[in-house]
């Protein structure tokens, strides 16, 4: 079973973070929330594995 990766796994973290914040630029609070929801669903689909997704849900709590 694949486990949820909690060690650093993003090659260029500063680039990713800047892109993430930039993606929200100009959005209202409501639009940002909706954007985040879509983003989570897209990433969840990419992960696929239900055990990993449950582990992620628990980690975020």
């Amino acid at each position: 079973m694949t486990a949820l990766i909690l060690s650093p796994n993003i090659t260029t973290p500063d680039d990713f973070y800047a892109d993430l914040i930039a993606a929200h630029e100009g959005l209202s609070d409501e639009e940002s929330d909706a954007f985040n929801a879509r983003l989570i669903l897209i990433l969840a689909n990419h992960i696929g594995d239900q055990d990993v997704l449950n582990e992620a849900l628990n980690t975020a709590r």
């Binding site: 909690l6 060690s7 500063d14 990713f16 973070y17 914040i21 959005l27 940002s32 985040n36 980690t59």
Partner: peptide, 29 residues
């Protein structure tokens, strides 16, 4: 922005317990 603040604090919260979030903490490179 509000959302930038939310993400910032989420990173800080996660970084306490999880190594993956620490490279995202940026108090100066």
């Amino acid at each position: 922005s509000e959302i930038s603040h939310t993400f910032r604090n989420a990173v800080l919260k996660l970084a306490e317990r999880h190594a993956f979030a620490r490279p995202l903490v940026n108090s100066g490179r």
